[in-house]
Amino acid sequence: MSDHGTHGPVTRPGESADETLQHSIEAAHGEHHAHGGLGKYVLVFLALCGLTTMSFFTYSPAWPWRDQPQVGWAFMMAVSCTKAMLVILFFMHVWWEANWKYVLTIPAAMMALFLAIMLIPDVGMRNRMVSQERAMHMARPADLIELEKASSEGPFVEAAAH
């Protein structure tokens, strides 16, 4: 391969162009087994398990911010983003890839973000102005339901006493 070094790889007999490219990429980066390794994967795996336990912890009674769900949501999203980063960087080998990774991932991520933001006015705020007919069948907020329950426990208290 060394005599072709300056011109890039040449397809060898019995090999497809893609395989040749694969070999040349690996040779050029000298990364045949430079990254990966069982130890690193086990470490990432343990980190992922630990993070899952952390987000599951928000569900346990020991979670200190039970009355403020927003804290838990923010925490869980932070944990999820960390997990996603670990998977992308190490399992998907993006950590070791060349700069093309930015070309493919950043525009897609930006589009994804815009897509979600664009949904807010139409979908997220759709309950701000609704027709009379629709309002009739809509669910009511939780506090109203609690009020109703409190005001109508008559007959079943009796039934249970018998």
């Binding site: 994804a112 897509l115 979908v123 809509m138 009511r140």
Partner: peptide
């Protein structure tokens, strides 16, 4: 996921 999030937080309950 985006529509889930906006539906979930835009819902009365």
């Amino acid at each position: 996921l985006g529509s889930y999030v906006v539906l979930r937080f835009g819902a009365p309950i």
